[in-house]
Design a protein around this nucleic acid. Sequence first.
DNA 1: GAGTTTGAAACT
DNA 2: CAGTTTCAAACTC
Length: 773
Amino acid sequence: MDVVSPDLNSLLPDEIMDTEAIEDIPHSHPDSTSVQSEPNDDTPVPMETDTPMASENLSLCSNVTSTEPTQALTTSAATDTILSISSGSQLPMSISTTSISTSGLQKLTAPFAISAANHQIILNKVASSQATEAAKSAGTQPQVIKQEGQKLLVTAIGKSGQPIVLQLPHTGSKPGISQMSGDPKSQAPQFKVVTIGGRSELKPAMGSAGNQMTTLQAQQLKTLQIAKKTPTSSAAPIKFIITKTVNSKGLSPQTTVSPVIAGRALTQNSPVMPPRTITLSESLNTSIQSISGKKIAISPLKTPSKVTVVSVASPTSNATQKSVALPVNVALGQQILTVQQATSASPVKVATSQNTTQNIKQVQSVAVSGVAGSQFKTIIPLTSQPNVQQIQVPGSRFHYVRLVTATTASSAGQPSGPSTSSLQTGDTLIVVFFWEQTYTALMAPKPLTSAAVVTTTQTQQRLIMPATPLPQIQPNFTNLPPGTVLAPAPGGGNVGYAVVPAQYVTQLQQTPFVTLASSSGFPASTAIQTQARLPLNGLSTAEATSRPRKPCNCTKSQCLKLYCDCFANGEFCNNCNCNNCFNNLEHETERLKAIKTCLERNPEAFKPKIGKGKEGESDRRHSKGCNCKRSGCLKNYCECYEAKIMCSSICKCVGCKNFEESPERKTLMHLADAAEVRVQQQTAAKTKLSSQISDLLMRTTPVISSGGGRMPYTFVTKEVLEATCECLLEQAKKAEQPQVEAERMILEEFGHCLMRIISSAGKAKADCASINC
DNA sequence: GAGTTTGAAACT
DNA sequence: CAGTTTCAAACTC
């Protein structure tokens, strides 16, 4: 019953394999700077990242010591079941994924239970009903996972400053997370949604001891929630999908990453100190492995502060996937941002479907499934998860889900209630993971170009991160230019992450492939709108309008060098005049590489050259100083002058006239000020005129945009035009002569027609038939 | 708009 | 690190 293959055992650290030992390991304090449990150097740790840091182990395993390897579940006919476990390290986890065969599950006399010990999340089967009892004692409704035909979806939610911690209290033999009482005979596929993250009130579900809970609370542990799903008609094996794991503070020993099949994790690892390494890993390793009774390390969290990002299912086809590790390191000062994508070398089996989606809806969870039967499902716990908000974008096939903490959601003016899901099969889910309020996400062009992207490698999801320094990742993370694409999707990578400041989303929205900007129906209270101030209906926000950017004209640099102002400012080229531009989402790989190169050359390449003084502009100065020789620093060639600051001692300019007492400078400044005043006056006049016109239109058409009213022009339908023309012709016939009189009558009639149209529009009763001569 | 000037960025 | 080249913006005509 407890089966762990010898090979697997050899790969797993002792802490994982020996649950008894794990239980005995005391919890370390969150603030503790010492690692209480060091990884066993002698034991290869498959999921270990290359960073020798303390980490936490997230494991799916049996709480029972595996003494019967031969009992490992063998692949059954129903091979849909996939237990995906990913490694966050660049080293592909050989045991990263595990498939659970239905037959194997049937062998289990006891249901699976998720237990945690020694900061490890252990999904194991329970040999007794203790788990159920424990859960009941904890006051939680026992969650049942069918042994057959069920899919277990595990996800996690992170929050700003408090990444999800995949840590569970030492439950020992009393896993209280989920209890099983499934009907072994049931062939109907069922879903179990394991939500890691969310509210603290769910912690009792963990079934952990009181002291353990304390540890968990201190660690801001996110709870596991297993939602029962109604069985579906088709028999399907259990599918484990761990989408995200975050560890805010590492108390426990080793290991790293923990993403899953389609899960992706951005983990920031640091022993106890601020993380030195940021690992954004996508683990698509889907090596199917038997799990019955085995201990399976899902993804050990290697270090304390881990920020796991998102996890949108990456649709996979039935085709065999290649195991590809695509580490992309972005130098961030001393940090290394690692992006890893790994696909499974083994055929990925996907289960499906609309039934799944519907079932998930029943549990108020969001499942994203691919199309054509080959899909992947992402679990997004919406149920009783105040920190999850679905963002509906009318007209878009893509669904956005915002994962925020309650605090963030509240500050963002989010509705308190959980959002419901309306995802359909084939839809693409975009998870917006907010650490800060400025987080937002957008979809890459590729998914929009083809429906197949949903299930193929073209699918990309991007995480947009704020330009503002992240408490967890700063300061090095700030070196990343806004718009940095963290995870390219080279060679058909399924997922990509883009780090883009929210303020630039507006810019991106203006691009053809951005879909967030949509018509009415976009929730005004959504995070994206409130936080990123996304333009609506193509209208630029005040922020966008106040920040005009000159289009570049690059011809040779591909806009991937600092010659390009767009690139230098961390922006994507948009409406530029550049040629062969690579500064866009379509060239994520190249752009990322260029950014990396620039950062290697100058870690502060993307930092503002003009530092802000602490007390007003007088303290503003160029970070490097200028080197002007001929311009006298009184032309825009000079970066100091261009920034409207005076040269400082660090400048190496020759013949500088850009100093306080310079008469030339004063003259130029006066001229510039005068010109600026004129421009402002002109702008104000235009704005006033525009406002007056708008006001006039509003008065004439009071219901143009409210209450489902239609825009005035929408009333000018073909029928209306025809009727109007008939009226004019009729009037012309009446007039006959003289010509001047005819023209007058025609114009008058035209005016009458217009008035009728306007009147109809105003009454929101557009009826073309009403305009009759 | 074409050509020139300029200085930062990139390169050696 | 200095010198040179490349580049694109600023500028001039």
